[in-house]
């Protein structure tokens, strides 16, 4: 079995994997980082969004081997020193989550949005979230949370 090596949440990891292993399964099953979720099998729901080399990617749509040598960030790496990232804090403050299953992918995706567009309007936020499905919130509070987080992150 080939070996893949990558940096995940700042730590270098190396594992022998079956070549068909998806990045999301590698993260969940090999690294036991179960915050990254699987909600579909057609790359639609976005529950598995992580950052690969700084941008959001659906971890179900990449092989682990494709992330060889990459920097991967998962939801577990977002809070620093026990402090929620402004995006996490805004989701909490504005009730942008209910069952929590889509939440890690939603938050990771939203962080990437704000990196690209520091001041997204409601329409831009809604368009960006095309690739993340939430069944609980109706998106109302997610949109609100992301706009507040963007403001916070602009400082």
């Amino acid at each position: 079995m080939p070996t893949v090596t990558m940096t995940v949440n700042g730590q270098q990891v190396s594992r022998d994997v079956d070549p068909r292993t998806l990045l999301v399964d590698f993260i969940r099953n090999e690294l036991h980082l179960t915050g990254t979720h699987v909600g579909c099998d057609t790359s639609q729901c976005g529950a598995c969004v992580v950052h690969v080399d700084g941008t959001s990617q659906k971890a179900c749509t990449m092989l682990a081997m494709q992330a060889d040598g990459c920097e991967v960030a998962t939801i577990e790496g977002l809070a620093k020193n026990g402090e929620l990232h402004p995006m996490q804090a805004a989701f909490k403050e504005h009730h942008g989550l209910q069952c929590g299953f889509c939440t890690p992918g939603m938050v990771m995706s939203a962080v990437d949005l704000v990196q690209r567009n520091p001041d997204p309007d409601e329409h831009e936020v809604r368009e960006w979230l095309e690739g993340n499905i939430c069944r609980c919130t109706g998106y109302h509070n997610i949109v609100k949370a992301i706009q507040h987080a963007a403001k916070e992150m602009r400082g």
Binding site: T74, I75, L78, A79, L84, F91, H95, L97, T103
Partner: peptide
């Protein structure tokens, strides 16, 4: 008041 359960979901520590 804010939800007590949110921190674990927001940090990927929910247990499904």
């Amino acid at each position: 008041v804010l939800r007590k359960e949110d921190n674990r979901f927001l940090t990927g520590r929910g247990r499904y």
